[in-house]
């Protein structure tokens, strides 16, 4: 009996929904409409959450209508791009390199919609990747490290050996070379991004080899790097570390000298603004210090110990990078 009742209710829902089943609808609206596809949950406290924060800011700051979908598998990408494009969205973000293939298949059919992937290298008239120039900040890290190093040895600890990770180290090395030719930079890759003990061990090993400045690219496992440096500093050594991606200065205020910070939400706002204003061009959208997306943040508690001339030189270098006068070398990918 209950079953029959439930069946009727459910059937009713179906029938009620049926008149809504029109053909394909192509809505043209005045409002700017922005959609986001993320490969994972937007409550992950990291990659996907940053993108969603960006989308919310786009909604707030540009008054856009926004929509978000969490795609479960690469097989879903194309259909979701298509759905948004068909619905007349002006801009669709695919938050990851893995979206470029599907976007490239969809983009030609919907020239009115702009597709932007977070990182990637596929470019079409209405498809481009946004590329974060974190290298600009890691270049400054390398420069400052080499300036201050007493041993002339620096260390870099990476998670997975990805081109994007390696590229930040390329810039770090270049910065160091610029400050002090012949400086040594040792790179270590852990193979994963979440292994705090491994990061700590690798950092200790680099310190044992004489490195006195360490940069890392292991996300939150950077905690392990900071711990190792703190232990060494407690023994009286003058050793420091750099934070990356977000401002990690407060994670170990006594040893984190500066952070190379990437502001992903602002990047989304920046791209959306460009698309809305019609300044989108079919080329990788490079977002760095000049756009205010990447920044180099000194730890105010420690910067006092740096000689004024060095600080002035650093500021001048940063200004050159912002203005585009200085092109920071980066990995080719």
């Amino acid at each position: 009996m209950l079953v029959r009742a439930a069946l009727l209710v459910a059937l009713g829902c179906f029938v009620a929904a049926l008149p809504g089943c029109g053909g394909e609808t192509t809505q043209q609206t005045e409002t700017f409409r922005v959609a986001l596809l993320t490969p994972g949950s937007i409550s992950d406290g990291g990659w996907n959450q940053a993108a969603y924060d960006g989308l919310e800011r786009v909604e707030r700051e540009l008054g856009a209508r926004v929509s978000h979908v969490e795609t479960k598998s690469p097989a879903q990408f194309e259909e979701e791009f298509r759905s948004y494009a068909r619905d007349g969205f002006d801009l669709v973000f695919g938050h990851g390199f893995e979206y470029q293939e599907a976007a490239a298949r969809v983009a030609p059919s919907y020239p009115e919609t702009v597709f932007v992937t977070t990182s990637g290298n596929t470019v079409l008239p209405n498809l481009a990747p946004m590329v974060f120039e974190l290298e600009q900040a890691t270049y400054l890290c390398g420069w400052l490290a080499a300036k201050l190093s007493s041993s002339g040895r620096l260390g870099a600890i990476g998670g997975v050996d990805l081109p994007s990770i390696r590229s930040t180290f390329v810039a770090f090395r270049a910065g160091a070379e610029a400050a002090r030719p012949g400086v040594s930079v040792r790179e270590v890759f852990l193979g994963r991004f979440d292994d705090v003990p491994a990061a700590r061990e690798a950092a200790t090993a680099l310190l044992d080899e004489g490195a006195d400045f360490l940069i890392h690219q292991v996300n939150d496992a950077g905690r392990g790097v900071f711990q190792a440096v703190q232990e060494r500093a407690a023994k009286g050594s003058r050793v420091y570390a750099f934070g990356t991606n977000r401002n990690q200065n407060d994670m170990a205020p006594d040893v984190v000298l500066a952070s190379a910070v990437l502001d992903v939400p602002s990047a989304f706002v920046e791209v959306a603004r460009r698309v809305e204003s019609g300044s989108f061009r079919a080329e990788p959208i490079r977002l760095g210090m000049g756009e205010g997306i990447v920044s180099f943040v000194l730890n105010a508690g420690l910067s006092g110990g740096i000689e004024a001339p060095v600080l002035q030189e650093l500021a001048a270098l940063a200004a050159k990078i912002r203005s585009g006068e200085l092109q920071v070398p980066r990995g080719n990918f």
């Binding site: 079953v3 029959r4 439930a6 069946l7 209710v9 459910a10 059937l11 829902c13 179906f14």
Partner: peptide, 9 residues
């Protein structure tokens, strides 16, 4: 019936 009923829920 199961499928429809669960949609109701």
């Amino acid at each position: 019936a199961a499928a429809l009923a669960s949609i109701g829920i």
